[in-house]
Write a protein that binds this DNA or RNA. Structure first.
Length: 592
RNA sequence: GGCCCAAUAGCUCAACCGGAUAGAGCAGCUGCCUUCUAAGCAGCAGGUUUCAGGUUCGAGUCCUGAUUGGGUCACCA
């Protein structure tokens, strides 16, 4: 039982005997005391004043008197307005610390058997990954780590968009203009090479269109009539008909893209357990929709197109199969969702990490799945996140303002290297150790920067700030960890966990310990809310408090139980930071 | 235009179910390294939480309306 629960339970019993009323625990607020007041926990007594029929302060005093008599771990209390501040004894806190230290499972996942699928990344195979994908990947990956830590069995996945007109565009351009260029021959990364031909296609297409327009054809007509467009359509048909030559070209170029992406994912330190390919799943959705039509869930228009009526749900009508029998994105998503639940029938949650421009799409998708009668439909969640803006405004590929993921990672690591060398604390490290350190710091800074902001919110990416090491940054937290480790290294043996009885806590120690003891609860709340920013802010808070403690209070030069206590506090802080940061997918260095 | 989302210090962000005097960081100014890592700590300054109403013991948080910005309303993905 947590200390919160004990206090609340005692309070409930008190109200029961005193007033004869059962109180609703959800009405009670027991928070950590704000730092400008004395105490550890604060009870807001306003909800009780009506029952007691006296002034808030009187109620607070009465409750405080009772609690201090009933619970020996409460040392004192004070009342300010309607707030009852409870201060716990030093013994209570040292015992908490000792118990945490003795508990080998303190930082272990508590398995609950729930299977949770987390989808993220799912990029377009025609374009290299960019800054927006970084936010997506870091978020999705972090959420999967958080879910695993809170005990779920997590399946990390993505759907690879490997077919369709857009793929044919780069294939066609490569065949026409590529002159046999390969990643090997050009030294270009595979995804970059394919992306290049996608752009080339677009350029040629546009000049064809404008030529047609010069001849008096309307823009709309020109888009369809352009020779390149006709060729692409033809290629798509051949692909669907399994034309061996096209399929061969297709797998070769996809292979280049995957190799390129893999390289990027490696550096990002994200990974996947199960990949779904659209080329393997896109037909499934159609079958389901056809069956849904037969079952009367959908309806057919005169032109043969199939629709879902969602007006009763406050939404619109949604097209699912075109008049010509081909499918749309939504149809494929239905197929993929069903397939996943077939693959993992015991799944309790399916999380889609996708930008908020698709909020409506997912609202519709989940509704349709529900209408189709899938019992698991309510288990689907859209982890929606806001766009990443640059100081210059929105990223636009047309204007060449897209920040490439690979370039950015090179840049942040280089920045970390420069600042580290300025500090000159690297003498004892080998060259490869130094390289690892720069990587840890640079990528850590980038991840922390992108994860620190509430996912739901649109955010500003300032390149300067993203590599900063002072202030609310990843390197600041990493530095605090390295600092803890330095203290522990110098402390000699592993003397900790001695007898901590009788240590009187200083304010900073108390605040730090209070923060550390709320670790589990904070992580669970964050996992439930799918919110890595809560984890990042928690790590920052711990780091700040530790640094204050470190600054004000001697550790190694202290004696006896005090020294043990402070070392143990340092050890628990370092572990907490390490585990907390690991949930963000960020490493921490032993030295920096 | 319909629907959805956001708006907090000069800038970037916090503030769990409505709780105390709205907090950090950056930028600016000022102190602190012969002592455990100064990538740190402490201090100063910075606010009508976009605006107008409402709900209540109490509103940045909930409701209504407005303003501004963004998204979305494709037989694109």
């Amino acid at each position: 039982m947590t200390n919160h629960e004990r206090i609340l339970e005692t309070l409930e019993a008190f109200v029961r005997t005193e007033i004869g009323v059962e109180i609703d625990r959800t009405q009670l607020v027991l928070d950590e005391t704000r730092k400008e007041f004395e105490g550890d926990f604060t009870l807001v007594v306003f909800p009780l004043v009506k029952m007691f029929r006296s002034a808030p302060e009187a109620v607070a005093n009465k409750v405080g008197e009772h609690l201090i008599q009933s619970l020996k771990e409460i040392e004192s209390f004070n009342v300010i307005k309607g707030f009852l501040n409870l201060k716990m004894t030093s013994d209570y806190w040292t015992r908490q610390l000792a118990e945490a230290g003795a508990d080998s499972n303190f930082f272990s996942p508590r398995e609950n058997g729930d299977v949770v699928l987390v989808e993220y990344s799912s990029p377009n195979t025609n374009k290299p990954l960019h800054l927006g994908h970084l936010r997506n990947n870091f978020l999705g990956h972090s959420v999967s780590l958080m879910k695993a830590f809170s005990g779920d069995d997590v399946v990390k996945t993505q759907i690879i968009n490997d077919r369709g007109v857009h793929i044919c565009k780069s294939m066609l351009a490569w065949r026409k203009f590529g002159d046999g260029e390969t990643p090997e021959s050009s030294g270009l990364k595979g995804d970059k090479l394919v992306g290049k031909y996608y752009v080339i296609f677009d350029q040629h297409l546009r000049s064809e269109i404008s030529e047609l327009e010069h001849q008096g054809v309307s823009n709309e007509e020109a888009k369809k009539a352009a020779p390149l467009m006709m060729e692409v359509q033809e290629m798509l048909q051949k692909w669907e008909a399994n034309d061996p030559e096209i399929r061969k070209l297709w797998s070769m170029m996809n292979g280049w893209v995957y190799a390129g992406f893999e390289h990027t994912y490696d550096r990002m330190q994200v990974s996947f357990d199960h990949l779904y390919y659209e080329s393997e799943t896109y037909l499934k959705g159609k079958d389901i929709v056809v069956k849904g039509l037969a079952d009367g869930v959908f309806y057919k228009k005169e032109d043969g197109s199939v629709w879902c009526d969602l007006e009763a749900e406050g939404l619109d009508h949604k097209l699912l199969i075109r008049g010509d029998g081909t499918t749309v994105y939504m149809t494929q998503d239905i197929g993929t969702a069903v397939l996943r639940f077939e693959d993992y029938p015991e799944m309790t949650q399916a999380i889609y990490t996708v930008g908020d421009e698709q909020d409506y799409h997912f609202k519709v998708l989940f509704k349709i799945l529900e209408k189709l009668g899938y019992s698991w439909a309510p288990n689907c969640r859209h982890l929606s996140y806001g766009m990443v803006d640059l100081p210059s405004g929105k990223m636009k590929s047309r204007e060449g303002t897209v920040v490439d993921a690979d370039d950015l990672m090179v840049e942040v690591v280089r920045a970390a290297q420069e600042s580290s060398q300025d500090k000159g604390r690297l003498d004892s490290l080998s060259e490869s150790e130094q390289r690892d350190l720069f990587e840890t710091l640079g990528i850590g800074a980038l991840k922390f920067f992108l994860l620190r902001v509430d996912p739901k919110k649109r955010m500003m990416f300032d390149p300067e700030e993203s590599v900063a090491l002072n202030g609310d940054t990843g390197p600041f937290v990493q530095y605090t960890y390295a600092r803890c480790r330095a203290v522990l290294r110098k402390s000699g043996a592993d003397p900790i966990r001695a007898d901590l009885e009788g240590v009187q806590l200083m304010d900073k120690e108390r605040a730090l310990l209070r923060g550390l003891m709320s670790f589990r609860a904070e992580m669970n709340t964050a996992a439930m809310a799918m919110n890595p920013s809560a984890v990042a802010n928690y790590c920052l808070e711990i780091a700040k408090v530790y640094n204050q403690f470190y600054h004000d209070i001697p550790i190694l030069t202290a004696d006896g139980a005090e020294r043990s206590f402070r070392l143990e506090l340092t050890r628990l802080t370092s572990e907490t930071i390490k585990v907390g940061m690991s949930l963000l997918g960020i490493d921490v260095p032993e030295q920096m």
